[in-house]
Design a protein around this nucleic acid. Structure first.
Lengths: 232, 232
DNA sequence: CCAAAAATTTGATAATTGTCAAGTGATTGC
DNA sequence: GCAATCACTTGACAATTATCAAATTTTTGG
């Protein structure tokens, strides 16, 4: 593990409240690797031997069933993923692949569990993180069950707008094909949904999104903190 | 709190590994209440002041957005619910109502968080529970995104069959209207899906389910431990 | 037990979403 | 730079699912 990676890891709230000694124990056994784009990191069903942390680049979490694949989430720096499998010592429920060249820290699950038992600050942080993950997953389910695909797209755009400091012109950060899968629609359906949004004050050409009538978009999207706020 | 309720609570894995003294602290402030059927216990958006535990009866978790309602889960004894909101000290993401006459234990969130900080056995149990909740929610999302409504119904029936000791004849434990909502379909669509399942060796009249050709059903449902196993 | 209410089913139809094929446009690697 | 590949879009059509209205069955309360 390179010394330069350590400050990156310390950005994580997951490691903020643990004793320095335990943090050292944890990263001693860690290793870091830089992967090219489109490399499979983990495969669902495999056993969770490492907690993964994206230090740079980005990672897609996805799942497959019966020859269908769906995009579950995008992990951006600095975040951990598959914490639950690590803690439970269970199989991964999702696969992961790099979307671009990415630097990944791998912490042996066995060490994570051991430090978790010894360091109550870390344990509390794990709980907070898992509670956040769970609540995000509940929000996902609500988003899927309560909204049409057009409404999901509209809310996705509003969230993107919020992330980009409320700019009215911003770039889509993921390929449309993956966005479609993430929103549970086909690329064709997304393409048509994008066209439909013109009447709600949204122009998208290529990856550039322009919101020309936020009120119209909000009226369609009806965002709710209980679905769309990642912080609550 | 009645003395008779305490052994019920001790059935919960959540409280299995904590010191007896801390358990006493926790239940000292608890109170128990018996609610009639169809009573709202909590409403999404409200603040999570109590960890709830179903001791008898059953509780529906559901969510509403834009005048649509969807059934998220059924909580049966003995289980806690809304642990994540309690720990995060955040708003509930789901509402809860009794489905039948139910006995509910209410533990003040503030005490739960306090004991969580003091008792590492309890903290570990909370982590396990949250990891399970999260993984269940991920499975839900996969179920919704990767399967058609007919496939979801087929897998639901197989899970029910498993729960009833693999009996080939068993009863539906929830009303069809709620099952439809849980499976993200309309009652009409469920009714037609049930009819379609006849060609896959399933007869349903009223609440009685008879599986006459498990192989045909399995071939349709293609259950996967990474979606359908609640234990992994 | 019976009437009223609720739940479920059925039929007709519409809206949404998916599939396939073909085309256009962008990106990439030599 | 340019062919080759990949991503995206469009059109035609099909499958899935929803909606509305009405019929039927089941449940419930007196």
């Amino acid at each position: 593990m390179r010394a330069g990676d350590i400050p990156e890891l310390q950005k994580l709230k997951l490691f903020a409240d643990m004793t320095p000694a335990h943090f050292q124990d944890l990263i001693r056994a860690a290793y870091v690797q830089t992967f090219p784009p489109h490399v499979d990191l983990i495969s669902e069903g495999d056993h969770g031997d490492f907690l993964h942390i994206v230090v740079s680049g980005s990672v897609e979490l996805y799942s497959v069933w019966n020859h269908h694949e769906t995009s579950m989430a995008t992990v951006r720096p600095v975040s951990s993923f598959i914490l639950a499998a690590t803690i439970k010592n269970g199989p991964y429920l999702m696969s992961a692949r790099t979307l671009e060249k990415s630097r990944i820290v791998l912490l042996p699950s066995i060490d994570v569990r051991e430090i978790f038992d010894r360091d109550s600050g870390f344990a509390r942080a794990v709980v907070r993180e898992l509670a956040n993950c769970y609540r995000s997953a509940v929000k996902d389910t609500k988003n899927l069950k309560l909204r049409s695909s057009l409404e999901r797209l509209a809310n996705y755009l509003i969230r993107s707008h919020m992330r980009s400091n409320e700019a009215l012109v911003f770039e889509l950060t993921i390929k449309k094909r993956r966005l479609a899968s993430f929103l549970d629609m086909t690329p064709e359906n997304l393409s048509r949904a994008i066209k439909s949004l013109r009447s709600y004050g949204v122009q998208i050409d290529g990856t550039r999104v322009t919101i020309t009538d936020m009120n119209a978009l909000l009226k369609l999207a009806k965002p709710s903190p209980l679905i769309d706020d990642y912080s609550t």
